[in-house]
Amino acid sequence: MTQDPFTDLKQRQREMWASFAPTATFTTPTAAHLVRFAQIQPGETVLDVATGTGVVAITAARAGAKVCALDLTPELLDVARDNAAIAGLEEIGWTEGDAEQLPYPDASFDVVLSQFGHMFAPRPGVTVAEMRRVLKPGGRVAFATWPPEHLVGQMFILIGRHSPPLPAGASPPPQWGNPAIVAERLGAHFGEATFERGTKVFPALSPQHYRVSMERGVGPVQKLMDGLAADPAKLASLRAEFDALITPCFRDNLVHEEYLLTRAQAR
């Protein structure tokens, strides 16, 4: 088997997302929106790619689907298993795995889902091909991503400006929030994409409280801030940039995060 050129990047991702569990709680309403948008039906077989703490997988299972889910980060899968046990849904199959190398046979699922997850896999073409491979004929894919023009997409663009460049051949995650780029990426394997937008809200006492939550619970933000701990001036400047992005989206003690949903049927 050919050596994966992104092994080191994926190891860093596996480690940096380990602290995400508390923040994942706030994605549960979006998970319900995604499952409804995906038109999940009782008895369908569903794969949740980059499941994190399992919020989408558990929501789909509660809708009557037969669910498998995978993630790179074992610490998040431990939380997902606990969440499933609390919900009485211990039949969900949890697997540590990679969106670019899905460990499932061809034509295994009716639906493939991903919420703010597959977008971090470095090669969109490989990820899309894998999603299509494990779908049954006529199956569908549905996912949530962050548009580059809105808050979370802008935050990841800011992180990219202050971080070492991605390895050659890796695509920036916010591109997955551009409908034109998404349609192009899906085009070889799927029919015309359907899009819908939504807004997730994050409770916070101030823009600064929100930024601190991101520093503590969103791996790429945490890693960037930790890397500047020895340079207080640069750290303060970066925090000011974050606060300036957040402030226009802060109203009534809520930070408003706009997202994009995509759905398409396999050719």
Rank of each mutant, 00 (worst) to 15 (best):
I181D: 09
S19E: 12
T51E: 13
A87Y: 02
T262V: 15
P22I: 07
V141M: 13
R14L: 08
G97F: 06
L113G: 01
A168M: 14
R123Q: 15
A142P: 04
I86S: 05
A180C: 00
M119Q: 14
R197F: 11
P164R: 14
A180Q: 12
L135M: 11
M214L: 15
L254A: 08
G138W: 10
T27V: 11
V141L: 15
P29K: 05
T23I: 08
F109V: 04
D231L: 13
R216A: 09
W176S: 03
R62V: 02
T127K: 03
P74W: 07
R140L: 09
Q208I: 08
E130A: 04
S237W: 12
T53G: 03
D82R: 13
F156T: 04
L245I: 06
P164C: 11
T7D: 13
G88R: 13
L235R: 15
I159G: 01
S237I: 07
A188P: 08
A84N: 04
A233R: 14
M214H: 04
F109W: 06
Q208N: 11
P148N: 10
P74I: 10
L224Q: 10
Q154W: 09
P172N: 10
T73E: 02
R14I: 01
P172G: 07
K234H: 12
R211L: 10
Q175W: 13
I157P: 04
Q222R: 15
F120I: 09
Q101V: 09
P148S: 14
D252S: 13
R140W: 06
A266R: 08
R132N: 12
M1K: 08
E241L: 08
L76W: 03
D106E: 09
L158F: 11
G97L: 07
T51R: 07
V126Y: 05
Y210M: 07
F250W: 12
A38I: 03
V112Q: 02
K234I: 04
V49G: 00
P164F: 09
P220D: 06
Q175C: 07
R14T: 14
A266G: 10
V56M: 07
T53I: 10
T53Q: 08
C249L: 06
L72V: 08
N253A: 14
T194S: 10
R197G: 13
V218C: 04
R161N: 11
T45P: 00
C249S: 15
F120C: 04
A61W: 01
G198Q: 05
G219M: 01
D110V: 05
A180G: 05
P179A: 04
S237K: 14
I58A: 02
R185P: 00
R267C: 01
E184Q: 15
L254S: 04
P22M: 02
A61H: 01
Q154V: 13
R161M: 13
G54F: 03
E44D: 06
N83D: 00
Q101W: 11
D252Y: 10
F26T: 12
E241R: 12
F120R: 02
V141R: 02
D8L: 12
D98M: 05
W17Q: 08
V126S: 12
A170S: 10
G52I: 08
T23M: 14
G191F: 10
D231P: 07
E15L: 12
F190V: 05
Q154G: 06
R14H: 06
P174Y: 05
D8P: 00
G93H: 14
T199H: 01
G88Y: 07
I159V: 15
R123P: 01
N253W: 13
R251I: 14
E15R: 14
Y259Q: 03
V112P: 02
E91C: 01
Q101A: 15
A32V: 13
P147E: 05
